[in-house]
Amino acid sequence: MNITLVILGTVTVVSGATALSLRNIVRSVLLLVVSWFGIAALFLWAGAEFAAFAQALVYGGAVSMVVLFAVLLTRRNHLDATVPPPPPGRLLGALIAGGAVAGIIAATVIRTPFELANDEAPSLPVRRLGTLLMGPQLAALLVAGVLLTAALLGAVVIAAGRKDDKEGAP
């Protein structure tokens, strides 16, 4: 077992789990950012320089901002960022949904045949990565992009759906 991997993995998992269990939502987000940086560090450890920096840029720099912005905009009292514990029904739903996603991911990981890497981590220059992404992997890239756009549109629909809310339309 590699000691760096253990440390990075522990930091990532522990900060992620703590983020889920905290009641103070701003602290949760900041811990989540730590977890994302942990993932970036894991990429770096694995020799995937580009993926690591992209992870840090997109998650640490952009997604965290959007999440924090959403949190601040939806609080009624801005300085009080605590959330009550969820009701049991919601907890159960979250467990089922989360468990399903985790199951799918785990099944995919287990069933996918991985070529065992040699001791030497393969170094892939950014240039080749770009040609690969824009050439043979273009379809996968487009599918991922379309999926994310659909998710974004869904989020907008969900967020804009409730017109008869109190406090009037913005």
């Binding site: 900041l30 920096f53 992209a54 840090a56 840029l57 640490g60 720099g61 952009a62 965290s64 950014v126």
Partner: peptide, 12 residues
């Protein structure tokens, strides 16, 4: 990419 990853987090 590293440069912008490092500087983007500062607003956090």
């Amino acid at each position: 990419l590293y440069f912008f990853a490092a500087s983007a987090s500062s607003e956090l």
